[in-house]
Amino acid sequence: MGNNDEQPLPINDDETVQNIAIKDIKANPYQPRKTFDEQRLEDLAGSIKNHGILQPVVLRKTIVGYTIVVGERRFRAAQMAGLDQIPAIVKTLTDEEMMELAIIENLQREDLNAIEEAEGYRKLMDDLNLTQQQVAKRLSKSRPYIANMLRLLHLPISIANMIKDGRLSGAHGRTLLTVKDDYQMKRIAQQAVKEAWSVRYLEQYVNEHFGKKNETNSKNQATVKPKFIKQQERQLKEQYGSNVTIATRNKKGQITFEFTSEEEFKRLIHQLNEKYHRDL
Protein backbone atom coordinates (compact mmCIF):
# COMPACT_ATOMS: atom_id res chain seq x y z
CA MET A 1 0.00 0.00 0.00
CA GLY A 2 1.18 3.58 -0.67
CA ASN A 3 2.21 4.36 2.88
CA ASN A 4 4.28 1.22 3.30
CA ASP A 5 6.89 2.08 0.68
CA GLU A 6 9.55 3.18 3.19
CA GLN A 7 11.73 0.63 4.98
CA PRO A 8 11.13 1.12 8.73
CA LEU A 9 13.41 0.40 11.62
CA PRO A 10 12.67 -2.93 13.32
CA ILE A 11 10.11 -2.53 16.10
CA ASN A 12 10.72 -4.45 19.30
CA ASP A 13 7.88 -5.84 21.37
CA ASP A 14 8.67 -3.45 24.24
CA GLU A 15 8.49 -0.33 22.04
CA THR A 16 5.19 1.49 22.48
CA VAL A 17 3.44 3.28 19.64
CA GLN A 18 2.28 6.74 20.73
CA ASN A 19 0.16 9.38 19.00
CA ILE A 20 2.32 12.50 18.76
CA ALA A 21 1.03 15.95 17.76
CA ILE A 22 2.37 16.88 14.32
CA LYS A 23 2.99 20.46 15.47
CA ASP A 24 5.58 19.15 17.96
CA ILE A 25 7.59 17.30 15.30
CA LYS A 26 10.54 18.76 13.37
CA ALA A 27 12.36 17.40 10.31
CA ASN A 28 15.61 15.48 10.70
CA PRO A 29 18.53 17.93 10.22
CA TYR A 30 20.67 15.00 9.00
CA GLN A 31 18.20 13.96 6.29
CA PRO A 32 20.30 13.72 3.10
CA ARG A 33 17.21 13.90 0.90
CA LYS A 34 16.30 17.55 0.40
CA THR A 35 13.58 17.25 -2.27
CA PHE A 36 10.45 15.10 -2.31
CA ASP A 37 8.25 14.33 -5.32
CA GLU A 38 5.07 16.36 -4.77
CA GLN A 39 2.85 14.05 -6.80
CA ARG A 40 4.00 10.99 -4.88
CA LEU A 41 3.45 12.86 -1.62
CA GLU A 42 -0.10 13.70 -2.71
CA ASP A 43 -0.70 10.03 -3.59
CA LEU A 44 0.59 9.01 -0.18
CA ALA A 45 -1.57 11.66 1.52
CA GLY A 46 -4.61 10.22 -0.27
CA SER A 47 -3.72 6.73 0.92
CA ILE A 48 -3.33 8.02 4.48
CA LYS A 49 -6.78 9.67 4.34
CA ASN A 50 -8.32 6.35 3.28
CA HIS A 51 -6.32 3.86 5.32
CA GLY A 52 -4.45 5.78 7.98
CA ILE A 53 -0.72 5.38 8.70
CA LEU A 54 -0.02 1.66 8.92
CA GLN A 55 3.66 1.96 9.87
CA PRO A 56 4.57 4.37 12.72
CA VAL A 57 7.33 6.91 12.20
CA VAL A 58 10.37 6.86 14.49
CA LEU A 59 11.16 9.98 16.54
CA ARG A 60 13.78 11.24 18.98
CA LYS A 61 12.70 13.33 21.97
CA THR A 62 14.28 16.79 22.16
CA ILE A 63 14.00 19.67 24.64
CA VAL A 64 11.26 21.37 22.62
CA GLY A 65 9.49 18.42 21.03
CA TYR A 66 10.52 15.61 18.69
CA THR A 67 12.76 15.12 15.67
CA ILE A 68 12.05 12.63 12.88
CA VAL A 69 14.48 9.74 12.66
CA VAL A 70 12.68 7.56 10.10
CA GLY A 71 9.52 8.31 8.12
CA GLU A 72 9.79 11.86 6.82
CA ARG A 73 7.67 11.09 3.74
CA ARG A 74 4.89 9.75 5.95
CA PHE A 75 5.19 12.84 8.18
CA ARG A 76 4.96 15.25 5.22
CA ALA A 77 2.07 13.33 3.67
CA ALA A 78 0.24 13.31 7.04
CA GLN A 79 0.56 17.11 7.11
CA MET A 80 -0.90 17.30 3.60
CA ALA A 81 -3.72 14.96 4.67
CA GLY A 82 -4.60 17.36 7.50
CA LEU A 83 -3.78 15.03 10.39
CA ASP A 84 -3.22 16.55 13.82
CA GLN A 85 -1.41 13.50 15.22
CA ILE A 86 0.75 10.72 13.85
CA PRO A 87 1.56 7.26 15.30
CA ALA A 88 5.19 7.14 16.38
CA ILE A 89 7.81 5.24 18.34
CA VAL A 90 10.15 7.41 20.40
CA LYS A 91 13.77 6.22 20.58
CA THR A 92 16.80 7.42 22.52
CA LEU A 93 19.53 8.07 19.95
CA THR A 94 22.79 9.99 19.64
CA ASP A 95 23.37 12.52 16.85
CA GLU A 96 25.63 9.99 15.14
CA GLU A 97 22.96 7.28 15.27
CA MET A 98 20.37 9.71 13.89
CA MET A 99 22.67 10.63 11.04
CA GLU A 100 23.40 7.00 10.21
CA LEU A 101 19.74 5.95 10.27
CA ALA A 102 18.70 8.90 8.09
CA ILE A 103 21.30 7.97 5.46
CA ILE A 104 20.42 4.26 5.60
CA GLU A 105 16.70 5.03 5.26
CA ASN A 106 17.48 7.16 2.22
CA LEU A 107 19.49 4.26 0.73
CA GLN A 108 16.43 2.01 1.02
CA ARG A 109 14.24 4.17 -1.22
CA GLU A 110 12.67 2.28 -4.13
CA ASP A 111 13.33 5.15 -6.56
CA LEU A 112 17.02 5.50 -5.66
CA ASN A 113 19.33 5.78 -8.69
CA ALA A 114 22.91 4.52 -8.81
CA ILE A 115 24.49 7.95 -8.28
CA GLU A 116 22.32 8.68 -5.25
CA GLU A 117 23.20 5.24 -3.88
CA ALA A 118 26.92 5.92 -4.33
CA GLU A 119 26.53 9.35 -2.70
CA GLY A 120 24.84 7.66 0.26
CA TYR A 121 27.78 5.29 0.74
CA ARG A 122 30.24 8.18 0.47
CA LYS A 123 28.25 10.21 3.01
CA LEU A 124 28.29 7.30 5.48
CA MET A 125 32.06 7.04 5.08
CA ASP A 126 32.72 10.79 5.35
CA ASP A 127 30.25 11.73 8.09
CA LEU A 128 30.81 8.70 10.30
CA ASN A 129 34.46 8.04 9.41
CA LEU A 130 33.73 4.52 8.17
CA THR A 131 35.73 2.33 5.79
CA GLN A 132 34.23 0.63 2.76
CA GLN A 133 34.35 -2.66 4.66
CA GLN A 134 32.41 -1.19 7.60
CA VAL A 135 29.77 0.29 5.30
CA ALA A 136 29.44 -3.05 3.51
CA LYS A 137 28.98 -4.89 6.82
CA ARG A 138 26.33 -2.47 8.10
CA LEU A 139 24.33 -2.72 4.89
CA SER A 140 24.85 -6.48 4.32
CA LYS A 141 26.61 -5.93 1.00
CA SER A 142 30.01 -7.04 -0.29
CA ARG A 143 32.94 -4.64 -0.10
CA PRO A 144 33.64 -4.94 -3.87
CA TYR A 145 30.02 -3.91 -4.52
CA ILE A 146 30.47 -0.77 -2.41
CA ALA A 147 33.79 -0.02 -4.13
CA ASN A 148 32.27 -0.39 -7.60
CA MET A 149 29.36 1.88 -6.72
CA LEU A 150 31.72 4.54 -5.33
CA ARG A 151 33.61 4.57 -8.64
CA LEU A 152 30.54 6.20 -10.21
CA LEU A 153 31.32 9.38 -8.27
CA HIS A 154 34.35 9.88 -10.55
CA LEU A 155 32.13 10.29 -13.62
CA PRO A 156 31.82 13.75 -15.22
CA ILE A 157 28.81 15.65 -13.88
CA SER A 158 26.98 15.52 -17.22
CA ILE A 159 27.13 11.70 -17.25
CA ALA A 160 26.18 11.47 -13.56
CA ASN A 161 23.08 13.55 -14.41
CA MET A 162 22.21 11.12 -17.20
CA ILE A 163 22.20 8.32 -14.62
CA LYS A 164 20.19 10.39 -12.14
CA ASP A 165 17.42 11.08 -14.64
CA GLY A 166 17.35 7.50 -15.91
CA ARG A 167 18.85 7.99 -19.37
CA LEU A 168 21.77 5.73 -18.44
CA SER A 169 22.16 3.01 -15.80
CA GLY A 170 24.89 2.57 -13.20
CA ALA A 171 26.28 -0.28 -15.31
CA HIS A 172 26.59 2.11 -18.27
CA GLY A 173 28.51 4.49 -15.99
CA ARG A 174 30.95 1.83 -14.78
CA THR A 175 31.63 0.81 -18.37
CA LEU A 176 32.26 4.42 -19.41
CA LEU A 177 34.84 4.83 -16.62
CA THR A 178 37.15 2.44 -18.46
CA VAL A 179 37.48 5.01 -21.26
CA LYS A 180 39.54 7.32 -18.95
CA ASP A 181 39.36 10.39 -21.20
CA ASP A 182 36.53 12.72 -20.09
CA TYR A 183 35.89 14.16 -23.56
CA GLN A 184 35.58 10.72 -25.15
CA MET A 185 33.51 9.53 -22.20
CA LYS A 186 30.97 12.35 -22.66
CA ARG A 187 30.84 11.83 -26.42
CA ILE A 188 30.15 8.12 -26.06
CA ALA A 189 27.59 8.70 -23.31
CA GLN A 190 25.64 11.13 -25.51
CA GLN A 191 25.71 8.64 -28.37
CA ALA A 192 24.61 5.81 -26.06
CA VAL A 193 21.63 7.87 -24.88
CA LYS A 194 20.70 9.04 -28.39
CA GLU A 195 20.77 5.50 -29.82
CA ALA A 196 19.52 3.72 -26.66
CA TRP A 197 22.55 1.43 -26.36
CA SER A 198 22.31 -1.54 -24.03
CA VAL A 199 25.09 -2.09 -21.48
CA ARG A 200 26.35 -5.06 -23.49
CA TYR A 201 26.54 -3.01 -26.68
CA LEU A 202 28.35 -0.21 -24.85
CA GLU A 203 30.87 -2.70 -23.46
CA GLN A 204 31.51 -4.06 -26.95
CA TYR A 205 31.95 -0.55 -28.33
CA VAL A 206 34.35 0.51 -25.59
CA ASN A 207 36.39 -2.69 -25.88
CA GLU A 208 36.60 -2.32 -29.65
CA HIS A 209 37.61 1.34 -29.70
CA PHE A 210 39.52 1.73 -26.44
CA GLY A 211 40.41 -1.76 -25.20
CA LYS A 212 41.81 -3.75 -28.10
CA LYS A 213 43.14 -0.61 -29.75
CA ASN A 214 45.13 0.26 -26.65
CA GLU A 215 46.35 -3.30 -26.33
CA THR A 216 47.55 -3.29 -29.94
CA ASN A 217 49.50 -0.09 -29.39
CA SER A 218 50.94 -1.24 -26.09
CA LYS A 219 54.55 -2.36 -26.09
CA ASN A 220 53.69 -4.92 -23.48
CA GLN A 221 50.99 -6.56 -25.55
CA ALA A 222 52.81 -8.97 -27.82
CA THR A 223 50.25 -11.80 -27.88
CA VAL A 224 46.75 -12.59 -26.66
CA LYS A 225 46.70 -13.22 -22.91
CA PRO A 226 46.63 -16.88 -21.89
CA LYS A 227 43.43 -18.11 -20.29
CA PHE A 228 45.06 -18.72 -16.89
CA ILE A 229 46.31 -15.09 -16.81
CA LYS A 230 42.77 -13.81 -17.40
CA GLN A 231 41.51 -16.12 -14.64
CA GLN A 232 44.09 -14.73 -12.23
CA GLU A 233 43.06 -11.16 -13.12
CA ARG A 234 39.43 -12.00 -12.35
CA GLN A 235 40.33 -13.68 -9.05
CA LEU A 236 42.47 -10.74 -7.91
CA LYS A 237 39.74 -8.28 -8.90
CA GLU A 238 37.20 -10.18 -6.78
CA GLN A 239 39.64 -10.52 -3.87
CA TYR A 240 40.75 -6.88 -3.73
CA GLY A 241 37.74 -5.10 -5.26
CA SER A 242 39.90 -3.31 -7.82
CA ASN A 243 40.64 -3.67 -11.53
CA VAL A 244 43.82 -5.74 -11.93
CA THR A 245 45.97 -6.12 -15.06
CA ILE A 246 48.69 -8.75 -15.50
CA ALA A 247 51.17 -8.12 -18.32
CA THR A 248 53.97 -10.49 -19.37
CA ARG A 249 56.87 -9.94 -21.79
CA ASN A 250 60.24 -11.58 -22.27
CA LYS A 251 59.80 -13.90 -19.28
CA LYS A 252 59.04 -10.91 -17.06
CA GLY A 253 55.70 -9.71 -15.74
CA GLN A 254 53.88 -6.88 -14.07
CA ILE A 255 50.72 -6.83 -11.92
CA THR A 256 48.89 -3.50 -11.85
CA PHE A 257 46.19 -2.57 -9.34
CA GLU A 258 43.91 0.31 -10.36
CA PHE A 259 42.66 2.86 -7.82
CA THR A 260 40.65 6.05 -8.34
CA SER A 261 41.02 7.80 -4.99
CA GLU A 262 43.37 8.15 -2.05
CA GLU A 263 40.93 6.16 0.10
CA GLU A 264 41.00 3.24 -2.39
CA PHE A 265 44.82 3.41 -2.52
CA LYS A 266 45.08 3.20 1.28
CA ARG A 267 42.61 0.30 1.35
CA LEU A 268 44.62 -1.64 -1.23
CA ILE A 269 47.88 -1.09 0.65
CA HIS A 270 46.20 -2.21 3.89
CA GLN A 271 44.86 -5.38 2.24
CA LEU A 272 48.21 -6.22 0.64
CA ASN A 273 50.05 -5.68 3.93
CA GLU A 274 47.56 -7.89 5.77
CA LYS A 275 48.04 -10.63 3.16
CA TYR A 276 51.83 -10.34 3.44
CA HIS A 277 51.82 -10.67 7.27
CA ARG A 278 49.42 -13.60 7.17
CA ASP A 279 51.69 -15.44 4.77
CA LEU A 280 54.84 -14.91 6.90
Rank of each mutant, 00 (worst) to 15 (best):
G170Q: 05
Q18T: 08
R73A: 08
Q271M: 12
K61H: 13
N220P: 00
H51Y: 14
Q31G: 07
D14L: 06
A118E: 03
Q18V: 11
Q79Y: 03
T175Y: 00
V69F: 05
L236E: 04
E38C: 01
D13T: 10
K49I: 08
P87A: 11
R73H: 15
R76Q: 15
M98A: 04
K230H: 06
I68A: 08
L59I: 12
R60Y: 08
K137T: 13
L152I: 03
Y276F: 14
A196K: 15
N50F: 09
L9Y: 02
E258I: 05
R174F: 04
I63A: 14
I53P: 00
V193Q: 03
Q232D: 09
L139E: 04
L236D: 04
A81R: 00
K49L: 09
G46M: 06
H270E: 03
L139V: 07
Y145W: 12
V193R: 02
Y205F: 15
I163V: 15
I188R: 01
N12H: 09
V206H: 04
M99W: 01
T16A: 12
L101N: 10
Q235S: 12
V17N: 03
R174Q: 13
P29F: 07
V206R: 06
A88D: 03
K123M: 13
N4C: 12
R249H: 11
K123Y: 03
K230R: 14
L168S: 03
I188M: 10
R174Y: 02
T245S: 11
I53T: 07
E274S: 12
M98T: 05
I63S: 15
F257T: 02
K91H: 14
Q254T: 13
